[in-house]
Design a protein around this nucleic acid. Structure first.
Length: 200
DNA sequence: CTGGGGATCATCT
DNA sequence: GATGATCCCCAGA
């Protein structure tokens, strides 16, 4: 009567609405190579209905993956120097996604340290671009199937407490409190409104 | 711990 | 040509 934990047990859950799926991903383990991270902070994005979503204006070459089936990785290049990663969720065609914002290193700490040598311990996996750096996720991983690898997602212990709040860094988005995090985790980002850019 | 400002380029209009 | 779902470094407390 062995209980066989199914590594893909999380994937059927990804088909739900993004704001329902996002909190389920907290505590889940994201793995790439010898590094494994326990997710501590995520953010939900609806597709065409959501002005904060990259898919808001319909499919483009970049956002093609978001319109595909759930369980794939959507990666994008940001601010000229950073890579961020989302898990595509919801029904095919809806372009919903969950941005992976922060995590705790549970395996491969030395590898992460090597990739982020100047980081303080607290900032190691704090923030979506840092998370990708820590895991070694690049634009090449865009479209990767999380059930097949090389980046995989496994269920973790169900979180006891989940807090929610406004999403980070969005301008002109309606208040959907779709940022989810595990309270008390040192890896969870401090809330900071987007800094206004200096006019030239 | 907090806050401010510069870096730098793929993507879309 | 403008714009970021950001990070890093620095100063100050």
């Amino acid at each position: 009567m062995a209980v066989s934990p199914e590594p893909s047990g999380l994937l059927p859950l990804l088909a739900g609405r993004p704001e329902e799926v996002a909190p389920l991903l907290l505590g889940a383990v994201l793995r790439h190579g010898d590094v494994a991270l326990r997710l501590t902070e995520v953010e939900a994005y609806a597709g065409q209905d959501d002005p904060g979503s990259h898919a808001y204006r319909g499919p483009t070459p970049r956002t093609q993956v978001m319109f595909g089936p759930a369980g794939r990785l959507y990666t994008y290049f940001s601010y000229g120097m950073h890579v961020c990663a989302n898990v595509v969720v919801g029904q095919e065609g809806t372009a919903a996604a969950v941005l992976l914002r922060a995590g705790e290193v549970v395996e491969g700490h030395e590898t992460v340290r090597r990739r982020r040598p100047r980081s303080s311990e607290r900032d190691l996996v704090r923030g979506p671009a840092r998370l990708c750096q820590a895991l070694g996720i690049t634009l090449e991983h865009g479209g990767a199937d999380l059930a097949a690898g090389p980046v995989t997602l496994e269920p973790g212990a169900a979180p006891q407490h989940v807090e929610t709040g406004p999403r980070v860094g969005l301008r002109g988005a309606p208040e959907r409190p779709w940022r989810y995090w595990l309270p008390g985790e040192p890896s969870v980002s401090t809330y900071r409104p987007a800094a206004p850019r200096r006019p030239r």
